[in-house]
Amino acid sequence: MATIDVNGKNYETDEEGYLLNLGEWNEEVGAYLAVEEKVEMTPSHWEVVNFLREYYNDYQIAPAIRVLTKAIGKKLGPEKGNSKYLYELFPYGPAKQACKIAGLPKPTGCI
């Protein structure tokens, strides 16, 4: 287990840097995790992060990448619902990076 310090407050993470308690997440924590992932957040990035949080809230899991692209396509349009778009935003993998920034656990189906 590890902790990160954001604005003087400690947050527990697992050994891979995923937030342990997603209830503690806020935008500052998200921004901090984004810096750690070397992702420069734009409104497009936040859109995906917020989508993931909503998905998690609805289904209690982080979606597999294939499921994420399909669901984003449905909600935000086909120009965003493809892996090329998502990988441009999160070059090291939307499932890994965007989920981490969103404060979600590692996606199920990630073997």
Partner: peptide, 13 residues
Amino acid sequence: KNFSPTYRALEGY
């Protein structure tokens, strides 16, 4: 953890 909402995600899978 209440995992019952996850059954509704199966369709997306």
